[in-house]
Design a protein around this nucleic acid. Structure first.
Length: 994
DNA sequence: CAACCTCGT
């Protein structure tokens, strides 16, 4: 970043060379404008509006270069009503100016007005007091004829004299009070004037006026849309104005009459006013919500999102067939792009490679957008050990957040809740907690929590911050994730997964040991984050000193702001490295093929660097790798070396580690980058999207449906209930889950005995909440106490909670792998198979070699072991003793049934039906029971692929259901009409082995 | 006879 003077000179020079123009004020204007804009598009738009430059020619390019150079200002604002707020602020300032001019007069007026009101009140009060005294006197005189006490003597003094003295005294008092009152009014006006003087610098005033004008113009353009929803908005606006008046009135009332005794009527009036105010507030909140939803329905080009829509967008939305619309939009985008960048252009510049790609179909990319970076693209710095410490600090200073350190800290100090908006890589995650630490938020033994949706993120960020602060990880800076608590008593900066903080609510419902809670990556809207919002909002209300920071990418911040009672938004502009985004010119049919072609294309046409490809699944990744390697081999030495490395969750970890190793020089690693956010983190980059820009804007869902509206909520309900939140229907969800989902969860918990008929948590429910597994699993674990088989049940629970990734099935060894799997089969069902696998693995000494030989995934097993150990550690807390069934698997199966009686199916003549809902279901072909078809069974989960399949099934007897869940099943519905026709063949086999 | 599988306590 250049110094202001240097920057100005640079702009002047450029202006001169590009446009033959060298006026200083133009340069200043350009810089000033750029500083106030939040995106390059906005900047260009503004320039266009003001006709400063002819932006059709090289000036546009220059404008973009300028934009990249200018340090932008952070903005603290409430985006939901930015335009409205500005207008109101302007009006208020106008009023303030007037106040400044005639404040003396208005004070006098106020005093006389309020004075008379005071006198009225005083009179009333006097009247009331007199009346009361008279009543008392009457009472006393009737009662106390015999007693003639001192007090009585006083009142029996000569009446006229006494009366005169009293009124005189009161009049004096009144006068004094009136004087005091007048003084208070004067003081108030003086305060206001001072505030006005402080706030109103003229420039800001003019700026506000200009902005208001722009806002007005935007509004004008929105008229057609506005009309549609005008009624509601109009009402809301009126209500809002009313509310503001009312609030001012109430505030004055309290200020002026705060210590004057009010009559009952006046008190009622005040109460009524307050009630009206509260209602109006509610109404307003509802109105805003409505408005927001209405604006969200429109797919606006990203550049204008968050700002008032312009008429053009709306017109385009409404007119023409989709194809036509797409073409027009595409054209508009292409026209706007300053630079056309096609692979063909590049290839023609390097004829050597054109030959290589001749047979291949080339894919055309068009650069549509650039995400600006604040740094010039440059090679990543290579540093020696000695330089490292210095460079760490240099990197810290280079982060986009750094220039706003002071502003940010001030904003945090001034507001309890602050929404922080910034791109990935702006440094918000690593820097802000450090700033807070430096600022002393961790004094007095208080801690700072920073939540991440993912484990790796929590770990790596903590490690990074520890390095930056020069402390050992786990000391001052630590992380806390499931199975791994890398914190100590010294830890004040705690990075953790969101689920972890949620768990902490169980032990510390008010988060008393934290001074700041920062919810990071809020835009991801994970289930845990969403629930944290509701809980933290609650806590913040009764802990006014607790600071809440909600950090999000450039999305949804308006919603967060609204949710947290219009908390201000702090926008951190800029990103570290620029990322160019390229879109395909036409949609691709076979995207895997297209992807491979693009990689090669990129490989030969672009400067050296790594290529990162995002695909949807393991199979695709493997296929793509094969295709790439195959083609590279065919091309042989004609192209530079290409190193293809796959990465996906199920990949053995040593393979994963390979991608972090540095690339051999001249070679290039693992195609179209789907997420520009990931790139640009360490160095400048380019992002190729294998879909058209139109599709990006229109076909992809703007934001995915929040997790909370998709998943089963059993766990969540249990957790909230155990935190004492009973009224779940009115819990403060950012996006409330569907009513039915909540009801379903409540019913399920009731059936499991976690809730009583009043919906209150039972003791067993409290225990279930302690266990970090699904309610049915935890019920199963609790039941293992009764059947004395907790050792086995723990294993089953652990194995069930690692999802279907136990068996490894490489394509080239399918037969061996399937054989190995069948070898683990035990009669009874899949749960026992899982138990068998784990037991054998444990007997092998938890060996990885054993896993390899038996086609079992070591990583999954290790995870199962972790889960098992964690659960074992919690057994004591839920009062379950360790016990083993000693081979009596009936007991294990009964305990499982106690948790899963909800998930049962019976064999009918037309196949399997679930017992309660009569849904047609099938045993999954991978199940050990697939060929046996027992009459009664229990399943762990249903998966819908080609059919509704039961995965992980266990054979049970219907009588067990009555034993474990008598409240849920009636003997009659478990009767089997075909009992005599079908002998218990399988049952016998099982008993023999049992 | 089916093949999807991200993340978290």
């Amino acid at each position: 970043m250049a110094t202001p003077a240097g920057l100005e000179r640079w702009v002047q020079d450029e202006l001169h060379s590009v446009l033959g123009l060298s006026e200083r004020h133009v340069a200043q204007f350009l810089i000033g404008t750029a500083q106030r804009c939040t995106s390059a598009e906005e900047f260009v738009q503004r320039l266009r509006d003001t006709d400063t430059l002819d932006l059709s020619g090289p000036a546009r390019d220059f404008a973009l270069r300028l934009w990249n150079k200018v340090p932008r200002k952070a903005v603290v604002e409430k985006p939901a009503r930015a335009a409205e707020r500005e207008a109101r602020a302007l009006l208020e300032k106008n009023r303030s100016y007037r106040l400044l001019e005639d404040s003396e007069e208005s004070s006098e007026e106020t005093v006389s007005r309020a004075g008379s009101s005071l006198q009225k009140k005083r009179k009333k009060r006097k009247h009331l007091r007199k009346k009361r005294e008279e009543e008392e006197e009457e009472e006393a005189s009737e009662k106390g004829k015999k007693k003639t006490g001192g007090s009585k003597q006083q009142t029996e003094k000569p009446e006229s004299e006494d009366e005169w003295e009293r009124t005189e005294r009161e009049r004096l008092q009144d006068l004094e009070e009136r004087d005091a009152f007048a003084e208070r009014v004067r003081q108030r006006d003086k305060d206001r004037t001072r505030n006005v003087l402080e706030r109103s610098d003229k420039k800001a005033y003019e700026e506000a006026q200009k902005r208001l004008k722009m806002a007005e113009e935007d509004r004008k353009a929105m008229v057609p849309e506005l009309r549609k929803k005008s009624r509601r908005e109009y009402l809301a606006k009126r209500e809002r104005e009313k509310l503001e008046d009312l609030e001012a009135e109430l505030a004055d009332e309290e200020f002026l009459f705060g210590d004057v005794e009010l009559s009952r009527h006046e008190r009622q009036e005040l109460k009524y006013k307050r009630r009206v105010r509260d209602l109006a507030r509610e109404y307003r909140a509802a109105g805003e919500q409505e408005k927001l939803e209405a604006t969200n329905r429109y797919h606006m080009p990203k550049e204008t999102r968050g700002q008032p829509a312009r008429a053009v967008d709306l017109v385009e939305e409404e007119s023409g067939a989709p194809g036509e619309e797409q073409r027009r939009w595409e054209e508009a985008r292409l026209g706007a792009a300053s630079l056309k960048f096609g692979a063909r252009d590049a290839a023609s510049q390097e004829p050597k490679y054109q030959l290589v790609l001749e047979e291949e179909e080339t894919i055309e990319f068009v650069r549509a957008t650039q995400l600006q970076g604040d740094e010039e693209p440059s090679a990543p710095p290579t540093s020696t050990q000695a330089q490292q410490k210095e460079s760490i600090q240099a990197v810290r200073r280079s982060l986009p957040v750094f220039p706003f350190r002071e502003e940010l800290l001030a904003a945090i100090a001034n507001h309890q809740v602050l929404i922080i908006e910034g791109e990935t890589g702006s440094g918000k995650t690593t820097q802000i907690p450090q700033y807070l630490f430096e600022e002393g938020y961790t004094n007095k033994g208080m801690k700072i929590a920073c939540t991440q949706p993912r484990r790796v993120a929590a770990m790596s960020v903590a490690a990074r911050v520890a390095r930056e602060m020069g402390v050992k990880l786990g000391n001052e800076v630590g992380y806390s994730i499931r199975f791994e608590d890398c914190t100590s008593e010294r830890t004040v900066l705690r990075y953790m997964t969101d689920g972890m903080l949620l768990r902490e609510f169980l032990s510390e419902p008010d988060l008393a040991s934290y001074s700041v809670v920062m919810v990071d990556e809020a835009h991801e809207r994970t289930l845990h984050t969403d629930i944290l919002f509701g809980l933290i909002k609650d806590v913040a209300r009764f802990r006014p000193e607790l600071k809440v920071l909600v950090a999000s990418a450039t999305m949804d911040t308006a919603r967060f702001s609204t949710f947290f009672d219009d908390a201000p938004v702090f926008r951190i502009p800029g990103r570290r490295f620029p990322v160019d985004i390229f879109y395909t010119k036409a949609p691709e049919a076979d995207y895997l093929e297209a992807c491979v072609v693009s990689v090669l294309q990129i490989h030969v046409t672009q400067p050296p660097g790594d290529i990162l490809v995002f695909l949807t699944g393991q199979e695709e990744i493997e296929a793509a790798c094969e295709m790439l390697q195959d083609r590279c081999r065919r091309l042989g030495s004609k192209i530079r070396e290409l190193l293809v490395l796959p990465i996906y969750a199920n990949l053995p970890s040593d393979m994963q580690a390979r991608i972090f190793q540095p690339t051999p020089p001249g070679a290039r690693k693992a195609s179209a980058n789907q997420r520009a956010g990931r790139a640009g983190r360490v160095a400048a980059g380019k992002c190729f999207r294998l879909y058209t820009a139109w599709a990006y804007q229109h076909e992809l869902e703007e934001t995915t449906v929040p997790e909370i509206q998709r998943t089963s909520l059993g766990n969540v309900v249990l957790l909230l209930k155990s935190l004492g939140i009973h009224d779940l229907m009115h819990f403060d969800f950012l996006d409330p889950p569907p009513y039915e989902t909540l009801l379903l969860a409540l019913e399920q918990l009731y059936a499991l005995g976690a809730l009583n008929h009043l919906g209150e948590l039972t003791t067993s429910g409290r225990k279930m909440a302690e266990l970090p597994v699904d309610p049915m699993l935890s019920k199963m674990i609790l039941a293992s106490e009764k059947y004395s088989c907790s050792e086995e049940i723990l294993t089953v629970a652990a194995m069930l909670s690692v999802n279907n990734s136990i068996f490894y099935r490489p394509k080239d060894k399918v037969v061996h792998a399937d054989n190995a799997r069948v070898n683990f089969f035990l009669p009874g069902g899949d749960h026992l198979v899982l138990l068998n696998v784990y037991t054998q693995w444990a007997e092998s000494g938890y060996s990885s070699q054993w896993c390899y030989e038996n086609f079992v995934q070591f990583r999954s097993m290790r995870r199962a072991r972790d889960v098992r150990e964690q659960l074992e550690g919690l057994l004591e807390r839920v009062e379950v003793g360790l016990s083993s069934c000693q081979g009596d698997y009936i007991r294990v199966r009964k305990a499982i049934t106690a948790g899963y009686f909800y998930h049962t199916a019976r064999l009918t003549r037309s196949g399997y039906r679930t017992v309660k809902q009569q849904q047609t279901v099938f045993i999954h072909p991978n199940s050990s029971l697939f060929e046996q078809q027992p009459r009664w069974l229990l399943y762990h989960e249903l998966v819908l692929t080609t059919k509704e399949f039961m995965r992980q099934v266990l054979e049970i007897e219907s009588s067990w259901l009555l034993e474990v869940a008598p409240h849920y099943y009636k003997a009659k519905e478990l009767e089997d009409p075909h009992a005599k026709k079908m002998p218990k063949k399988i049952g016998k086999t099982r008993e023999e082995l049992g």
